[in-house]
Design a protein around this nucleic acid. Structure first.
Lengths: 99, 99
DNA sequence: GATCGCGTGATCAAGCTTGATATCGTTAAC
DNA sequence: GTTAACGATATCAAGCTTGATCACGCGATC
């Protein structure tokens, strides 16, 4: 699924213009990015929770050279799926669509 | 941040009615939930990628009783932040807003 | 505003993910 | 059609996830 699919869903479900739907989708994710950029938790019931956590690992490794690299501190964005997404059935043996 | 904040952002940025904005936001996350429920990957450039993966862990534990519990197989929804969210600066010493 | 129910934290074993780099193919988005 | 984000791939140390239960805070609907 890509952004265009979401826009199409909005156009067919809400009867707004495509331009407005595009703006709406853009605003959703832009607002979320801004909140996460401020370190702000996002809780969307029945979808999930985005958390911003300090990223704290000591040593990484450059797989190319094998050389150890110190991982700098920063923020990590984590998503915890909400209840509906946590209780998905076990995957079928057929591969998932690409997107 | 909660759903209402996103709705407000859409109302102020796109000049649609509040009702339409609420429907749009609902549709965004409903569409995403449906896609993930189908095991479908979601790629949103500059926001991140949601993937559905098989979940396979063995033993859990009831924190109340200490009793072991077998964790059944299922699907796990994972979010990988996009580039902009991966390079957030280190957290300030002030705590993040609750939401 | 009232109400419902989702989300949080505690524990813990086992397995998975993350981050470092760089290149090239694929593809989302404009 | 163009641009740039994203995936895959290598290694490895450190951290995260996953489920069980339950009381309470709070998102979201009506």
């Amino acid at each position: 699924m890509i952004k265009l699919d979401i826009v199409n869903a909005i156009v067919s479900k809400t009867n707004v213009t495509r331009t407005k739907a595009e703006q709406a989708v853009e605003t959703v994710f832009e607002a979320m990015k801004n909140a996460l950029g401020r370190g702000e938790r996002i809780e969307l019931r029945r979808f999930g929770v985005f958390n911003v956590k300090p990223r704290k690992t000591g040593i990484g490794r450059n797989p190319r050279t094998g050389q150890q690299v110190s991982i700098p501190p920063g923020k990590a964005v984590r998503f915890k799926p909400g209840k509906e997404l946590q209780t998905l059935p076990a995957p079928a043996s057929t591969p998932a669509p690409k997107s």
